[in-house]
Amino acid sequence: MELISAKNVSVKYDARAAVRGASFSVSEGDYLCIVGENGTGKSTLLKAILGLVRYEGEISFENGLKRSDLGYLPQQTQVQKGFPASVYEVVLPGCLNRLGRRLFYSAEEKDDARESMRLLGLTDIANRSYRELSGGQQQRTLVARAVCSAKKMIFLDEPVNGLDPTVSRQMYDVIGELNAKQGMTVVMVSHDIDSAVRRSNMILHMDTEVRFFGPSAEYASKFGYKFFQNGGY
């Protein structure tokens, strides 16, 4: 069942094209990785889907998918690194999309936030200040918030950026489990091509334009020689 369909999407920053004529779709249960070099429009494409940048072309949410069904892990901003907020305070707005007209979070929503923290192994540091955490802990906090808000689909922009290999693997395991056990549709931007190909079922290779869109296995056999040259996977 198709959830997102994008046709001929282009995004311009000033006069420069960041994304040109991208077409692809995301179906329920997909684990789609958007790969490519730095500065090839991966994050921009994600922002276009989420309505955060202006784009030309057509992006439509199908089969009743709503903005409030989504979870999003943005790349961390400079402002956030020194922000005075506890881990719990940062994760709780994952329930923001469920508030509707209400002003305050319900007990159930607070429980959901705690459950997301547990999933990412943050329970012990729930009251620590975000600005005093290591980069990996900060990243896990933001992933917990995304998990908390995601009902059908989760968008992750470089989730393992700056993490050491062990923590990266744990992060991939959590994401894989969400996809496999809860049927969460995953759209991930990554420059870690090896893991992307191994873990995902669909690949979107960006180089301003779409270079490849299709099943990961097909991508691996088509571009596979590259991996062997780089030491294999």
């Binding site: 922002k47 989420l50 309505g51 955060l52 709503k66 903005r67 409030s68 989504l70 979870g71 999003y72 943005p74 901003t77 956030q80 922000f83 907020a85 305070e89 940062v90 709780l92 707005p93 923001l96 999309n97 508030l99 002003l103 305050f104 979070y105 918030r145 808000s149 968008f155």
Partner: peptide
């Protein structure tokens, strides 16, 4: 208060998830 916090910490997240 809750929306003020969400928007101060991360405007993009709030917008992307439907606020």
């Amino acid at each position: 208060y809750n929306r003020v916090f969400a928007m101060t910490f991360d405007e993009d997240f709030a917008a992307a998830t439907g606020s």
